[in-house]
Amino acid sequence: MTPVIECQQLNVRFRTDGGAVTAVSDLDFNLNAGECLGVVGESGSGKSQTFLAMFGLLAHNGTATGSIRYRGTELLNAPRSTLDGLRGNRLAMIFQDALSGLTPTMRIGDQMSEVLMRHQGLSRRNARARVIEALEVVRIADPEQRFSAYPFEMSGGMRQRVMIAMATLCRPEVLIADEPTTALDVTVQAQVLRLLNGLKNHTGTSLVLITHDLGVVAGLCDRVLIMYAGRAVELGPVRDIFRRPAHPYTQALLRSMPSLIIDPGKDLPVIPGQPPDLENLPAGCPFASRCLHTQDDCTTERPRLRAVGPDHSRACHLPA
């Protein structure tokens, strides 16, 4: 199977007042055609910065090195013309805050039509028909009416669905969803997740779901990448991650998560301490200071991703 996206040795750094911050270090992963990859991590784990780098959207004080290729085309530090041809067309991204992705002064129908007119050279009339169709797909009631609505006239859930409709207008090969449901209520989250699920099953789009919520991952993803302090700590099929988590961080994360299936009478086991300071990353494993089972080389040598099963790898020194 040829991967759609190949990321190799990605490093993302930011210059700040306090010195250099390493947001992502030595990240390798592939995204296969038609799969849904869940990228899980806490704030500061580098999960969003990885994909912002891929889209050329890093903040001005950030630099990315390494390689991210889309079907052989290098995206990292690519010329604007290359990126413009792909972004919004073959590669699409939706964000946590749907409002930031929509221009407040334009009618949503016009914003969406413009994407089609630019990337696919459609006439205004044909574009309108496609937009209304897309709004129907995301179950916006009254798409003809909503075509001429402004973003502020819609609820958060509706805006997020409009963003999904807009991101999928050109039938992208890759859709990156960065915390698409974090700002939404549970019942609306369920609507959006159902939509993404349908998209994956019916159009063959490869989906990357960036989230901190393992519950969302379990319901939607095929493979999961767990990130911690800018590194990949575990990568594997979703069932293995939940049934046989191999990295102590993944294990602790699963145990410490309140969910509807835990016993509320018992105290949740917590991960003690805080994630490390990204300005002063420790020499060894970034999780070592919070890990329950450390050995000598954990604090001195950085563990690399190594296979522990078919298609399943972890970055840990401990014996498997």
Binding site: D267, P269, V270, P272, G273, Q274, D277, N280
Partner: peptide
């Protein structure tokens, strides 16, 4: 985890 969490703020 014990009833008393670890003291934080080492950084």
């Amino acid at each position: 985890m014990s009833a008393r969490p670890d003291l934080l703020g080492s950084e």
